[in-house]
Design a protein around this nucleic acid. Structure first.
Lengths: 256, 256
DNA sequence: GGGAGGCTTCGGTGCCGGCCGAAGTACCGG
DNA sequence: CCGGTACTTCGGCCGGCACCGAAGCCTCCC
């Protein structure tokens, strides 16, 4: 091929110029910082100490990492007394991290044949619970998330064949069926978007509508958090409500 | 130095366990590798030598970087004789890099007051051309991309208020108006999705429909690449065609 | 006010990885 | 076959950064 690169020979870059993309990626390129961000995908605010313990590093180390993440716009901090609460800076950052995590998972098995550690029983149980139902920042994920998304699609409330959008019926369902107010589409954040589920490898509902749905279910006690993590379980009233609203009778038979 | 790695204390994690997210991010966390990826966002295949020259590093350095990016699933390689052609592994990777770049751009000005280098005239011209019209992997971006996306929306061919999806009229427009066949929605890739434009800070049309649109315009000579980069210009027949198809008469007055 | 808890700052250490040039390998053309 | 071209592999150098413990700061509580 033409190896000459005619006029664009000038497009050469000096090695020293910083690349914003690399700077941002660098923030997530450390194991400890990545663990912080993944933990914070539960959408809540953690203290520095909690994160340090979670990741198994000294408090001083965690503190420095948090400062860098805040400075880089990944996290937002809120100081209350002697606590430093920290959370993801917003839905867009959460989406970015989810996307990265979704892309990273498939390549996890590619490193070597002897790479797989046998997980502990505890860890296996936690993983099963996460796969069954969890939050993904502010919306539902796991089998529950995609099951609900599928049901919405089946009932013509959500259209996925030419993109990803609520239908007119879907809007009506939120207001009249679920009885939850959808805030008007606010500039930056779409009402509905697909978020790639990294356990199911399918899309589940995200965006404002996904957040409203998740908040509503939590608020009414239809789903509840298991322990302090991201994992969820559907409560008995939740089963009843979802059966009535979306015809999800088979939810009970979901293992997990 | 004594630093014994603590045992897995409940939800606590050992420092040594690798985090896939961090591994993936690490691939993009280097300036040179990031430059490679950004260059490859033009959707075409580059040789190792071209990329080395583009980034201003030795060939040996580039070679090692490419091997890592390929091993990590970011790039796909194709060896032809003594050439090693390399391209982005697919639309999903391209989207990921675009998203990261879009998030990284806003923080670019945050480092310092004296940070801004006065760009050369050449570079300024190239940047203006890129801002006016460019490809974003396999679809249109820049002012041209969002202008077309807006026109599609205005004509009711694309719906953005409850998500991001082509309407029935939009489907008909592709087939009957543009006369370009849309492949059936193939599992993984949506027909239409919004891609955040990092110069316009708005969404433009991506997904299969975006790719078909871009390919069609290039194929018919309605837009043409400027030099060997991602920048595009609208040709005279292109102006005429876009005016007829979408009522874009004012395209001529777009500076750039 | 004293003490305890949560966090930050500061030196210091060690490792990881990006870089190069030189030597080696594969492919192409004459 | 021989030279040139495109790329890869190998040492070796060097900077950056993740980590820790200790000391300091701030805030809350008794």
């Amino acid at each position: 091929m033409p190896a000459e690169v005619p006029a664009v020979h000038d497009g050469r870059m000096t090695r020293s110029t910083p690349v914003p993309l690399a700077t941002l990626a660098g923030l997530l390129a450390d194991g400890t910082r990545a663990r912080f961000c993944l933990a914070l995908l539960d959408g809540r605010a953690w203290t520095a100490g909690e994160l340090a313990r979670h990741a198994g590093v000294a408090l001083s180390t965690a503190s420095e990492h948090l400062s860098r993440l805040v400075a880089g716009g990944i996290l937002a901090e809120e100081r209350q007394g002697r606590h430093r609460y920290v959370r993801l800076a917003g839905p867009q950052v959460a989406q970015l991290i989810e996307d990265l995590a979704a892309h990273a998972a498939p390549t996890a098995h590619a490193d070597g044949p002897a790479g797989g550690r046998p997980p502990t029983l505890r860890a296996a149980g936690a993983a099963r619970a996460m796969a069954a139902a969890r939050t993904c920042y502010d919306h539902l994920a796991g089998r529950l998330g995609v099951t609900i998304t599928d049901a919405l699609t089946r009932h013509g409330l959500l259209s996925q064949d030419t993109g990803f959008a609520l239908t007119a019926d879907g809007l009506a369902w939120f207001e009249g069926g679920l009885r939850a107010a959808l805030p008007p589409a606010t500039g930056r954040r779409p009402l509905a978007r697909g978020c790639l589920d990294w356990t199911e490898r399918r899309h589940h509902l995200a965006g404002t509508a996904g957040a409203v749905l998740c908040a509503t279910l939590l608020e009414r006690g239809w789903v509840a958090r298991i322990g302090s993590g991201r994992a969820l379980r559907v409560t008995p009233p939740g089963h009843q409500a979802l059966a009535g609203l979306l015809g999800l009778d088979d939810l009970i038979h979901m293992p997990g």
